[in-house]
Design a binder for these strands. Sequence first.
DNA 1: ATCGTATCGTAACATTGTTATAAAACGAAT
DNA 2: ATTCGTTTTATAACAATGTTACGATACGAT
Lengths: 186, 186
Amino acid sequence: MRLLNRAGELLSSEGPSALSLRRLAADVNTSTTAVYSLFGGKPALLDALYDEGFRRFGQRLATVPETDDPVEDLIQIALTYRDSALEDRQFYVVMFSKVVPDFMPTTETYIAASGTFVPVVKTVQRAIDNGQFVGDEGPEVIGLALWSICHGLVGLELHGILPPGLEIAPVFERAVRATADGWRKR
Amino acid sequence: MRLLNRAGELLSSEGPSALSLRRLAADVNTSTTAVYSLFGGKPALLDALYDEGFRRFGQRLATVPETDDPVEDLIQIALTYRDSALEDRQFYVVMFSKVVPDFMPTTETYIAASGTFVPVVKTVQRAIDNGQFVGDEGPEVIGLALWSICHGLVGLELHGILPPGLEIAPVFERAVRATADGWRKR
DNA sequence: ATCGTATCGTAACATTGTTATAAAACGAAT
DNA sequence: ATTCGTTTTATAACAATGTTACGATACGAT
């Protein structure tokens, strides 16, 4: 589908505000009506992009190898999280920020998106079985905490609301490691 | 200024998409031109709301009392962070989410907003001096980590991207405490 | 009382998403 | 091969948005 490809390009190169139906239709030499017959409107198009964003995201996260040190695996997943977000930042804001008012993903695509979280929970479970992490909490809670520190730091970074003159990459890694340490048995 | 008050009301009750200049002007019986002479356009109006949001936010955070257990103080600040965000969620999305494309706060209001972060860093410094937290990292890094876990969890909660059937309040507190534990001397 | 600035109203303009209507394309069935 | 039905597309219009030009009004200081 040329429309969807071009929409992704526009989103990546010029951001969500450049993604107007007329602009998009003109770029692929068709009319705005095509978006309505093929997708069902702009929200549905955004939904497709949302889906595409999570597909890329999950694909990247899946490249992290599984070792016998699950906590270290989690660190690597977190670093990959940030790399992915920075590389596809325009998709990231569609996925995790409110770029278009009143946009809500379909429950189907939402469920597909939630799949991105599954490997994290599984790896946490391995760390619990391992004895590295405390076990009195479900793996979802620990996974959520790690997910959130990534989400929070990346969100602040993408919005430019971080203390100036800060080397972000090492701070990110340090913060993730400390967060993981907080769930270690002691 | 009636315009700003009404804008805040509209924002709080119906969200950013209901905040159109014509609607706003009609609600206070004036014309859209008023926004341009008094503020300078819609981005400038958003900037004023951004400022107002951080003012409320900082005011709430300042109510947390200072005890002789700075780490516990940080936990309470974090809980207040979440309460504030949930209470003024429409302001929160203006402050930390991209509700209007291409909106960037003025450097002045941005600096004023950064002031919200100062008490956190100070409290972290107290915990370092105290010997509760490790001291090989600057207080900004630790403060940023705590800030981010709040930001990330609240962001996911406001977007409705949290595992369903999850009691969020206790999970939030548990995650914040674990994150703080990650910086404790051991 | 007058002048200058600040504020406001009316109206227009460009752009956006959306939809009605009709034309065209395409595939399947007779 | 023709005909029918569905899908896709093009044109045009509509409502709503932010923005600006132009002129009128209000208001404060000199």
